[in-house]
Computed example of a mutant assay.
Amino acid sequence: MKKCKSWVRKKVFWENMEAFGSEYLYLEYNSNNILAKGTVLFTNKQKAYQVFYEVHLDKAWNTRQVKIYVDDEKQKFLSSDGCGHWFINNTHIKELDGAIDVDIAITPFSNSLPINRFDWIKGEMRKFNMVYIDIPSLELKNLVQHYTFLDVHNGYRLFKYECLEYKTTIKVDQLGIVVEYPDVFIRHV
């Protein structure tokens, strides 16, 4: 398992090219835990949305707690034991068993979670069960995703990402944060 850096604060800004919008992410991690706070603004051409999320991780990048707010109308709070068991209000959600990471539908930060939990070898493919969180409905699914470490190019790591019938190649920086997710997200800072 990959170890966390000693202390990092990072601010990131992505443009969402698929659904007109953008995201501001504040990421802070130290030797004990990692905190990600995101603010996403987007439209699906019928309605505009404002989404806030917090993801609390342990030092090994295991998701421990997720809080999501959609506008001021909906919210979802999840917690995990870090071993693949999920809870809402201390009630075990068996359908999510086996998932360590979350995939919040409207943020590329979700890709950083499985990528940063491991040291990767070129050509290595890993399968992950993810707690997929749909936005704006906040519906939950246990979804299988695959990541393959392809190469390093100009200091960026390239990963093949696969989920259901969808495939793409994402580019991440040295901290494992998405720089480019073709035709969906592009990072500006």
Rank of each mutant, 00 (worst) to 15 (best):
T107E: 01
G155R: 05
S22P: 04
G123P: 03
K45Y: 15
A19H: 12
I34C: 06
H153R: 04
W7G: 13
E15D: 14
K141H: 14
V172A: 01
S137E: 12
V152Y: 03
V8A: 04
I121N: 12
N44G: 05
K59S: 15
W86T: 02
H153L: 05
Y147P: 00
D81T: 10
D81G: 09
F159I: 09
E165F: 15
T169G: 06
E162M: 03
F185D: 00
S31D: 15
T148L: 01
K167D: 10
L138R: 04
I170M: 08
Y181Q: 09
Y26G: 01
P182Y: 09
A99P: 08
E54V: 01
E54N: 07
E162K: 06
D58I: 02
Y132S: 09
L138V: 02
K10D: 12
T91S: 06
R157D: 13
N30V: 07
I115Q: 13
K37P: 01
R117K: 13
Q50N: 15
K141S: 11
L96G: 01
E18I: 07
I121F: 07
I177E: 03
I68Q: 00
P136K: 06
V12E: 00
T169R: 05
N44K: 13
S22K: 13
L140K: 09
E95P: 13
G82I: 02
Y156E: 12
P114I: 14
V12A: 11
D101K: 05
Y181S: 05
N33V: 00
L27M: 09
K127D: 15
V40F: 12
I104V: 07
P114V: 14
A60I: 08
L35R: 10
L35V: 11
Q174E: 15
L41F: 14
K11V: 01
K171R: 15
I186G: 00
Y29I: 01
Y166E: 15
N33D: 15
K5P: 02
W7A: 15
L164M: 09
S31M: 13
Q65P: 07
G176Y: 03
N142W: 06
I104L: 11
R9P: 00
R117N: 06
V8D: 03
T43A: 04
K45E: 14
E23T: 06
G123Q: 08
V40R: 12
N16V: 03
V131Y: 02
I106V: 15
V66G: 00
L164G: 04
I93Q: 08
D81K: 09
K10E: 07
